[in-house]
Nucleic acid binder design. Structure first.
Lengths: 189, 189
DNA sequence: CGATGGCTTGAAATCTCTCAAAGAAAGTGG
DNA sequence: CCACTTTCTTTGAGAGATTTCAAGCCATCG
């Protein structure tokens, strides 16, 4: 993925949609299906985005030829899995405002890691309905929870851009621990 | 993992515990941390279990020497990730009885795949409190939801054993689609 | 300018949780 | 094998969180 904003999702038979992860430039979300026959989820763009395609066969051949490179890609999929795990915690164990705050913390750090933040603000072109699909909340409740975060002077969201006014308190409100993002990976194997 | 019943979990600062996945004999849950420096979750036994240990270094060396084997292990971690994704859907988008039903469907198929079911019943040594931690529900509500599933003649749970009385209706109640388990993998690469 | 999609608000209905207590089952030590 | 302790299951009832329904507002786009 080169540019824009993507997300993975699954439809639920009852008509709902569950968003499973957000992706920013530098991510390779499709790696999750490299060794699986069928894709069990969908991948959508939140805004106009630019992506590159690498045929699975070519990538598998490349990995066979260069095992250390394979490890790097493998590691990438393991980090995605760690993020999925944290999302289980998010929708399973946090109350509404914390769930939203947690997602904002995560997206902020992911964007910061690729230099796409602007000080304490970043592009966040996600509608409240989509936040609801990501957090397992109704749009109405998302709206009220965001108002709460705004009233607490933690963040503001307007015109597809989110600004973080108090990072420390936002982290605390989200019970956010960045360990699961495994970001300090420069030089890691 | 050779014998017993394991689960992955994460503690939440507020004192709660979120269970992230259940594991049965044949699984290799620790593969998730093969290429990560720090383990961001815990692994616990639900009952007395037998496990084997393979040093990460040895496994990485083995994978470098045999890329097709590495693919198999990699695939295993991707399936775990697919299960994590389905769990996000479970806690995020299903109502209480469906969440529990969904977990029962999953465990049943995983056990069946390794020949550990007995007809339509299987060992399920998980307390209602643990089911609550896995589904993001309180113990009390788990209890009432199980009673509902029982009253509907879908399942029964007693003495650490679960019996499925109506698989089709249970699947429907859980909106369970086994695709994400990627079980028909015999011979798959 | 009308139409669309997203945001906001109010109020009632529903789900789920917490608290509190009692009954049932399982494990421990004598 | 029994008494005791602990853990697990079950029940009731009130409190709290979240959803649904319904409507109005606002910005954007053709």
């Amino acid at each position: 993925m080169l540019e824009g904003f993507l997300f993975l999702y699954k439809m639920v038979p009852d008509g709902g949609r569950q968003i499973l992860s957000f992706h920013v430039p530098g991510d390779i979300p499709d790696l999750q299906s490299l060794h699986l026959r069928v894709m069990d989820h969908g991948l959508a763009t939140a805004i106009q985005s630019t992506v590159g395609f690498i045929p699975h066969d070519a990538l598998r051949t490349l990995c066979h030829a260069h095992p250390p490179l394979a490890d790097k890609f493998w590691r990438d999929t393991l980090i995605d899995a760690a993020i999925f795990r944290e999302w289980i915690v998010n929708v399973g164990s946090r109350e509404a405002p914390s769930r939203i705050a947690h997602i904002l913390c995560e997206v902020f750090l992911k964007l910061q890691a690729v230099g796409l933040t602007n000080g304490n603000s970043f592009e966040f072109p996600i509608t409240q309905g989509e936040i609801g699909d990501a957090t397992g909340l109704s749009t109405v409740h998302v709206n009220r929870s965001i108002q709460k975060l705004r009233a607490d002077k933690l963040i503001s969201i307007e015109k597809g851009r989110c600004t973080i006014w108090d990072w420390e308190r936002l982290k605390r409100a989200a019970t956010f621990d960045p360990t699961y993002l495994h970001l300090k990976s420069v030089g890691d194997e």
